[in-house]
């Protein structure tokens, strides 16, 4: 991920090297989509969690390609370190079997597939119409941590504080719900 960061940042800044970042992006995107597809189709809960892990790592790599280093590291800290461990923990506490499990999916899979394809078609069409060949600015500067913190603690201080209260409420709520009395 870090070698990627250097190449991506060095090449994204210079116009002639942008194709390296592009190659990296398409590789990451391919990995992410394959892993996401495996995640929703696999018949083993722990495998699904591990595929989700791959998707989340790929998303973090995408942030780095976009120059959002702080968001990428936060993604790694929160998702890989906390959320995924929590999910795996939950999966194991609910006795995930080794091998193939039946009865993970509804019978009417085609309905879900239909909804997904239709949504995808609508979004794809509208995205193509709206941003057909819009390019990212070539001379973009990576967004530094200092900018992020300045922005959070000035413009977005109210949502930030609200979020703190939400997290505290979620913490207490989770304890209350899962507590064995």
């Amino acid at each position: 991920m870090s070698v990627l960061a250097v190449i991506a940042q060095e090449s994204a800044l210079s116009d002639q090297g942008a194709w390296i970042a592009n190659i990296f992006f398409y590789a990451i995107a391919a990995v992410a989509i394959m892993a996401a597809l495996k995640m929703v189709t696999t018949q083993n809960v722990v495998h699904a969690a591990l595929y989700l892990l791959v998707v989340l790592t790929a998303v973090a790599a995408t942030y780095i390609v976009l120059g959002a280093e702080f968001a990428a590291v936060t993604q790694a800290l929160v998702y890989l370190g906390a959320v995924m461990v929590l999910l795996l923990f939950g999966v194991m506490l609910t006795r995930a079997k080794i091998g193939i499990e039946t009865d993970l999916d509804h019978e009417q899979k085609w309905m879900g597939a239909l909804v997904a394809v239709v949504t995808g078609a609508v979004m794809g069409y509208s995205l193509w119409e709206a941003f057909g060949d819009v390019k990212l600015p070539a001379d973009q500067m990576p967004q530094t941590t200092q900018q992020v913190s300045d922005s959070i603690f000035s413009t977005y201080i109210v949502p930030f504080e609200a979020l703190s209260v939400l997290l505290l409420a979620a913490l207490i709520g989770a304890v209350v719900v899962a507590r064995r009395d």
């Binding site: 942008a18 592009n22 992006f25 995107a29 929703v40």
Partner: peptide, 17 residues
């Protein structure tokens, strides 16, 4: 780099989700 390549990746992941 096109903006759309990121948006399409997001859209595909969204539909899979």
């Amino acid at each position: 780099m096109f903006l759309n390549q990121f948006l399409f990746l997001a859209a595909i992941l969204f539909c899979i989700g």
